[in-house]
Design a protein around this nucleic acid. Structure first.
Lengths: 237, 237
DNA sequence: GGGTTTTTGTGATCCTGATCACAGAGGGAT
DNA sequence: ATCCCTCTGTGATCAGGATCACAAAAACCC
């Protein structure tokens, strides 16, 4: 059976093995079964909004396939992307747990699939299964560390070039260690700018500058990192 | 009985009533009693380090009196202050829960008192008392929101003036609503700079500039906010 | 394939804060 | 008082990006 957008439907994506540290993996059977009862699965096209900053938290989404960008905007239209979520990530957890409005907007940037669990069902479930509550606490502290890394990046570096170099290195690490390391560039310059807190033009210029200096090189949509050492130098300048 | 530094010893500061939403308040008697058994209390002078960025997490500190600054530094000596912790705050929680190194350094900026609970004892306690684990999850999501606010501040505003105005307004709100609102300035310009991500000089200049424009005014160590509206305008410029 | 929209490249200008460099002010100690 | 050390104020300089303004290129859609 084929889902739209060329994705395979995962009939039990809560238990998907893609991330060992996954929130809802390796739970007691009773818990897994209960989870399967309270979750509902849906498929989302590109640009679908899972939830929007400021909304009351309806529940959590467990991303099974596709990618989503989490962003927040100021009243004047400035936007920061705080995270690119990947399969296995749990979205909206802290809002659901603390019953505050969603603090970010989650928008699919690649078509995908997610499980949804309502807030009530989740809290009920957590009260029944104390062990899982600890898991949730761990997941929240992971979220916290991610946010915290963002602060370090935005606060401890002043130059966009530094942040951009850091971002590229981060991506190439996450993508595994090819040699030479390479990264598939799926985001627009605008989006990259919103991650590293600068303008689209600056990202364009940095990219050409990096190419000119032979730090990176394009092969289709893939960015090959030619001079990793030089990029690393820029980061701890 | 008087403690050093003119502080009253709180003989059971875990249950201190200062913050209703306090992590360890309003728990079942059994839990409170167990907590009292596993905690240990100590008094800290100004400049004492509760823990340092990168150390393995020994446990959590519940701040009972005094203030502490949480900060992180880059290899080149640049520093960001992520939070000024106040009585009732739990420090080192996410590190302890997730068993990662402390992500920040906690240094007392006012003498005070804190309870310490070792990581092992805490985890043990949480496994016994599932309800409290949920509380911990809530506290962690509070931490997350705080970090997240930091990202918004650093990422969505470009001008130090904007961030400084925002900081002052935040402080005046936290201090309750005097009229005119006023704030006790306990931090050095350097420290303020490390909060809003700028330099000491810029903070000095901004302060004089705000005085010149009659936005604020000094009364000893207290900063009186003369023109709140104007500051608010700067924030959503 | 043509027309439309989104994305990217690049020049010119301008301005804010970072940086460097001192001098003065305050605050403890002895 | 005196010394010392940490803070604060302010000037001068300078560079790196933000901003504005187009044009080219690519992606997208009937």
């Amino acid at each position: 059976m084929r889902a739209p957008y060329g994705l395979d439907i995962l009939d039990n994506c809560l238990a998907c093995p893609m991330r060992e540290e996954h929130l809802f993996c390796h739970l007691p059977d009773a818990a897994v079964q209960r989870l399967n009862e309270i979750k509902s699965t849906a498929v989302y096209p590109k640009s679908a909004m899972l939830f929007i900053e400021g909304q009351q938290p309806r529940g959590v989404f467990v991303l099974c396939a596709g990618k989503a960008k989490l962003s927040t905007s100021s009243s004047e239209g400035r936007t920061v992307i705080t995270k690119i979520a990947e399969p296995g990530d749990v979205l909206g957890l802290s809002a659901a747990i603390s019953n505050r409005p969603y603090e970010v907007t989650a928008e699919m940037i690649e078509p995908g699939q997610a499980n949804f669990i309502t807030r009530d069902a989740l809290l009920h479930f957590l009260r029944e299964h104390g062990v899982v509550a600890l898991r949730v606490a761990e997941e929240l502290s992971r979220n916290y560390y991610t946010a915290y890394e963002g602060i370090r990046t935005l606060g401890l570096t002043n130059s966009p070039s530094e942040r951009f170099a850091k971002l590229l290195l981060g991506w190439s690490n996450a993508a595994g260690n090819g040699d030479p390391p390479q990264v598939k560039l799926t985001l627009t310059h605008e989006e990259i700018a919103e991650i590293i807190g600068t303008t689209r033009e600056t990202v364009s210029r940095l990219l050409s500058q990096f190419k000119r200096k032979q730090l990176v090189q394009f092969k289709g949509a893939n960015l090959i990192i030619r001079n990793k050492a030089a990029l690393e130098d820029m980061v701890n300048s």
